[in-house]
Amino acid sequence: MNSTSWKEPSIAAIVAILAASVPLVFDAYWLSVSVTAMMYIALSTSWALFSGPTHYISLATGAFFGIGGYLVGTGMSDYNLSFWLMAAIAPIVATILAALIGLATLRLSGVYFVIFTLGLAEMIRNLVSWIQNNFLGSRGLYVLTDFTESHIYWMLLIIACCVYLLGWLVNRSRLGFALRIIGNDESVAKHVGINTAMSKVILFMTTGFFAALVGAVIAPRYTYIEPNQVFSPELSFLVVIMALLGGAGRLWGPLVGVIPFTLIWEFVSIQAPNSTTLFLGLVFLLIVYVLPHGFVGRIDQINKKLKERSH
């Protein structure tokens, strides 16, 4: 290991310690914004672990996140189980689902995968509503805990750190290297001996795991859970946008996208609540036409130019 490979995690550790002090300094409004941002940091970073190297656009985040929130809701309301038990079960269920989806779609071309994940959250929402209405009775699901916003924030921070640490380890592993090769040329990847389908499925499972975990941990924030609210297709798109805006090619890329986007999103939602969809569309086009590699790509480009100039 050379010194540069430790530089990033060291900086990350300092950033994490600073981030941990947020609930001690911020007021209630800004803490609430921070919780949202931390949620998206965990979601986007784990999304980029899979989609960054493979270039597969996953829109399944909303579905996994919803599974997390819904299972916590139904477990606590319908079966009187503890929050902790459900928060442990939910990610496992999502991981299994991710494995099944991955096995069915990831051996085919990327388009099938995008299409399959596109309607997934909506489909599961319909299915869950139907089951809830016909078999469980349509009572509301309550998630009553003693957690404050600060607790939720800290839990999300821990999850985000785990995602980061995992990403750091994966990037240094054969699996991470395999994914970079797959992203370059899947056919070459197979012929150098990489089990391409398996590598992709494993990474997709980890994004499923973390999305459901985040969904479960943030459920107490809403107190009242409704399938229509937790299985949100919009969430999947927001995660994609933030990760790509920052740059999915680097581990810290999504972080760079989440923070400005959350602030602007907050502003747009308050100032022009009817134009949020339009705004999302414009940001998508901005990414494709102006920032194809996100902020990170721009930063790299500027660095390169500065270096050339100094020579």
Partner: peptide
């Protein structure tokens, strides 16, 4: 590469169209 770009660009267009139609 084209597929990814086309997917993202047309997502953008779809959101813009939804936004306009909503208004």
């Amino acid at each position: 590469h084209l597929e990814v770009d086309a997917i993202l660009a047309t997502f953008g267009m779809s959101f813009i169209m939804v936004g306009l139609m909503l208004s």
